[in-house]
Design a protein around this nucleic acid. Structure first.
Lengths: 205, 205
DNA sequence: AAGTCATTGCACACCAGTGTGCAACAATGG
DNA sequence: CCATTGTTGCACACTGGTGTGCAATGACTT
């Protein structure tokens, strides 16, 4: 009676099953990214699988989106808490955060669109913790004088990282340029002077 | 044989008809603003009218959205061309533009959401001229050195006025504060120094 | 008074997407 | 070899929105 808990050695069947499950999730990000209104059928065929199979892994469309969101929240909070604790300066923390968040944001940019309409409330609720961490960081920057105060921290943080997603969404061919541009732009709108913003970006690897 | 062209004196029937038509359009902005996926039925009942009547004025949902977009484009280009010609400094022009655009942007903020999914292409196409004017203004600012160049003018203008719409979309209770915040934020992300941005906003009535 | 016509209230067909049920199939594991 | 089980392909019912057709109504026009 071994293998009583979960996934000790993962028999080949289970591995295959998880692979299709993961593939569905990965593909769903792409497909929904291209068209947020895509149906389960579109996702299924894009994943090389039948619609019925998708429902085998995710009882409903909402479950799929929810799982996607969970992933995003997990990855984002991980980056955010880590950076938040390590860097004493709010502006440097923001710069590092965006730089490290960029690949994630680029992958999950569809969630911004999905936040409206239909599952908006569910997604919005799950993204709450991320929003709070973000607002805290901006608040810290405002209190220490490195960020502007023309907007309350809650809204300013939303608008700033909304811009990051917007840039991630724009058809920018160069990936690295996008990351730098997103960092600089968000820093600028947070009230960081251009010279300082450029210096911060230059520090990034 | 008078009244051969259009609307010379508008008999009371025609006036009533145009009133309902305009009411439908006005209400549609609100309803779609609250929920971009709202159906013709929702719009109809919100306008105090039956669904069938809406189809009497607009043969299809697309026609309605198109009319809405036409309105927005007309109002926006009017403001934009006027401001663009009058003000020699790009940053001052942008500040005035946003200030005057604000009420319009606030009304038509739904178009930002509608730009994706379903009618996205149609709307995007109609908004083309506005995008160009906007990009030209930003380009002018970049060439004269008042705007930053971390992003190409086309994308930077999109992101900047995307932020304006985002602020218009945020649940900001104070209207006047929203306009000022939108102007300052967009100026900041265009690379205008905070002091200059605040000075420009202070010049606004 | 008679006619015009926007509006109404119902009817309907149509479409697209969702979610479920079930019998077959095929690869894996004992 | 046989049982398990993820996958498949087809079936179906259901929902919700779209767009159309048509007779009846009632206010306005001539």
């Amino acid at each position: 009676m071994c293998n009583n808990g979960v996934v000790p050695t993962e028999s080949s069947r289970l591995r295959a099953m998880n692979e299709t499950r993961d593939r569905i999730l990965d593909v769903a990000l792409d497909v929904l990214g291209a068209n947020p209104d895509a149906g389960m059928g579109d996702i299924a065929s894009a994943a090389g699988v039948v619609r019925r199979t998708v429902y085998g892994h995710f009882p409903s469309r909402l479950d799929l989106v929810r799982t996607l969101t969970e992933r995003a929240v997990t990855e984002m909070t991980a980056v955010l808490t880590e950076v938040n604790a390590s860097d004493p300066d709010a502006d440097a923390a923001w710069a590092e955060f965006i730089a490290r968040l960029w690949p994630v944001a680029h992958r999950y940019r569809v969630l911004l669109a999905l936040r409206r309409g239909e599952y908006g409330e569910a997604i919005h609720g799950m993204l709450g913790p991320v929003d709070e961490l973000l607002a805290d960081l901006v608040k810290r920057g405002q209190d220490s004088g490195v960020f502007a105060q023309h907007l309350p921290a809650g809204i300013l943080s939303q608008v700033a990282y909304g811009a990051v997603f917007a840039i991630a969404d724009s058809d920018l061919s160069d990936e690295a340029l996008g990351a730098r541009a997103a960092t600089i732009t968000s820093l600028l709108m947070l009230g960081v002077p251009e010279t300082r913003a450029i210096a911060l970006v230059a520090d990034q690897p």
